[in-house]
Amino acid sequence: MIVFVRFNSSHGFPVEVDSDTSIFQLKEVVAKRQGVPADQLRVIFAGKELRNDWTVQNCDLDQQSIVHIVQRPWRKGQEMNATGGDDPRNAAGGCEREPQSLTRVDLSSSVLPGDSVGLAVILHTDSRKDSPPAGSPAGRSIYNSFYVYCKGPCQRVQPGKLRVQCSTCRQATLTLTQGPSCWDDVLIPNRMSGECQSPHCPGTSAEFFFKCGAHPTSDKETSVALHLIATNSRNITCITCTDVRSPVLVFQCNSRHVICLDCFHLYCVTRLNDRQFVHDPQLGYSLPCVAGCPNSLIKELHHFRILGEEQYNRYQQYGAEECVLQMGGVLCPRPGCGAGLLPEPDQRKVTCEGGNGLGCGFAFCRECKEAYHEGECSAVFEASGTTTQAYRVDERAAEQARWEAASKETIKKTTKPCPRCHVPVEKNGGCMHMKCPQPQCRLEWCWNCGCEWNRVCMGDHWFDV
Results as ranks from 00 to 15, higher is better:
residue 3 V to N: 03
residue 7 F to T: 02
residue 11 H to I: 05
residue 13 F to Q: 05
residue 14 P to A: 04
residue 29 V to Q: 10
residue 32 K to C: 11
residue 33 R to S: 07
residue 34 Q to W: 12
residue 37 P to S: 10
residue 39 D to E: 13
residue 48 K to T: 05
residue 49 E to I: 04
residue 55 T to G: 03
residue 57 Q to W: 05
residue 60 D to S: 10
residue 61 L to A: 02
residue 63 Q to D: 15
residue 64 Q to I: 03
residue 65 S to A: 12
residue 69 I to G: 00
residue 74 W to V: 14
residue 79 E to V: 10
residue 82 A to H: 07
residue 96 E to I: 09
residue 105 V to L: 13
residue 110 S to G: 10
residue 116 S to W: 04
residue 117 V to N: 15
residue 119 L to F: 07
residue 127 S to D: 14
residue 132 P to C: 10
residue 142 I to D: 12
residue 148 V to I: 08
residue 148 V to G: 01
residue 151 K to L: 11
residue 151 K to F: 14
residue 164 V to W: 14
residue 170 R to W: 05
residue 175 T to Y: 08
residue 175 T to L: 08
residue 182 C to G: 10
residue 183 W to V: 02
residue 184 D to N: 09
residue 198 S to D: 10
residue 200 H to N: 14
residue 216 P to G: 10
residue 226 L to Y: 02
residue 232 N to D: 00
residue 235 N to H: 09
residue 237 T to D: 05
residue 244 V to H: 04
residue 259 I to R: 00
residue 260 C to K: 00
residue 262 D to R: 04
residue 262 D to Q: 04
residue 264 F to P: 00
residue 269 V to E: 06
residue 275 R to G: 02
residue 276 Q to D: 09
residue 277 F to S: 00
residue 278 V to G: 04
residue 280 D to R: 07
residue 282 Q to C: 11
residue 293 C to F: 00
residue 296 S to I: 00
residue 296 S to T: 03
residue 299 K to Q: 09
residue 300 E to H: 07
residue 303 H to I: 09
residue 304 F to L: 05
residue 309 E to H: 14
residue 313 N to K: 13
residue 321 E to W: 05
residue 323 C to W: 08
residue 326 Q to A: 12
residue 332 C to P: 03
residue 332 C to D: 03
residue 335 P to G: 06
residue 349 K to Y: 02
residue 352 C to F: 02
residue 354 G to K: 08
residue 356 N to H: 09
residue 356 N to S: 12
residue 357 G to M: 14
residue 365 C to S: 03
residue 366 R to F: 07
residue 368 C to G: 02
residue 368 C to R: 02
residue 370 E to K: 04
residue 375 G to Y: 06
residue 377 C to S: 02
residue 378 S to G: 11
residue 383 A to V: 10
residue 401 A to E: 02
residue 404 E to H: 09
residue 414 T to A: 10
residue 419 P to M: 05
residue 424 P to E: 09
residue 433 H to D: 04
residue 437 P to N: 10
residue 442 R to T: 15
residue 452 E to T: 15
residue 456 V to Y: 15
residue 456 V to S: 15
residue 456 V to Q: 15
residue 457 C to S: 01
residue 460 D to K: 06
residue 460 D to Q: 15
residue 461 H to V: 01
